[in-house]
Amino acid sequence: MAFQPGGIECVTPLNRSTDESSFVVAYCPGDCLTNPQYALQDLLNDLNTNENRLDKALHYDGFSGFRDFINFHRLQYFKEQARLQKDLSVKELMFMSGFTSRSSFYRYFANVEKMSPGEYMDMLHAENK
């Protein structure tokens, strides 16, 4: 179940497969998803909802919680920027995407993509040759 600002329920679900059309993403201000300081309380304030309601919406969309949600979107941004800015290193792209811990980023990336960020970058560079 997704929610509109003010906590009014909406029948449009969040959906990982359409991440950019996600209701929550649509209501995040500017660079909130790539801002390393952006926290759960900020999202709750931006959506004018409470943690229980947001948690239900995120679970409905397949996320285990706020951290999974924000890391997923940061990873999508990382991959997009890796394709667009091939001259940047994994570390530069990681920080640009809002990740602050190299080990957490590598662990999350490998868990989702089933390869390391370096292997992903190598794959991108090989596609362009």
Results as ranks from 00 to 15, higher is better:
D19I: 09
D87Y: 14
F72C: 05
K114P: 01
F109E: 02
D42N: 15
F63Q: 05
E113F: 01
K56R: 10
A26G: 08
F78N: 04
T34P: 00
L40C: 07
D31N: 12
D122K: 12
R53W: 10
A57P: 01
N35L: 03
K114W: 01
L47G: 02
H125G: 00
G7V: 04
Y77C: 07
L93E: 06
R107T: 13
D31A: 07
S17F: 09
V24Y: 03
Q76G: 00
D46Y: 09
N15L: 08
R107L: 06
Q81P: 01
R67Q: 11
D55S: 14
L124Y: 02
D31Q: 08
R107S: 12
N48T: 13
S22E: 15
A110F: 09
Y27D: 05
F105H: 03
R102F: 09
A2I: 00
S22D: 15
G98P: 06
L43R: 02
D19H: 13
M121L: 10
Q85E: 13
L44S: 06
Y77S: 08
E127T: 00
D68N: 12
L40H: 13
D55N: 15
R67C: 04
Q37P: 01
L124S: 06
F95V: 13
F23L: 15
K79D: 07
S103Q: 12
L58R: 03
Y106D: 15
S21T: 15
D61G: 15
K56E: 12
E20R: 13
C32E: 09
N52L: 11
S101F: 01
E9P: 08
R53S: 12
S89H: 03
L58E: 03
L88E: 10
N111V: 02
F95I: 11
F105E: 03
L124H: 04
D68E: 12
F105D: 06
T34L: 00
C28N: 05
M1I: 10
R83T: 08
N71L: 02
V11S: 14
R83D: 06
E92C: 05
A57H: 05
G30C: 09
P5K: 14
S104K: 06
L75H: 03
R83Q: 11
V25T: 06
K129Q: 08
P5I: 08
P36G: 08
P117T: 05
S97Q: 02
N52D: 14
K56L: 11
G7A: 09
E127L: 12
A110S: 15
N71A: 03
S17K: 13
A2K: 07
R74L: 05
P117R: 02
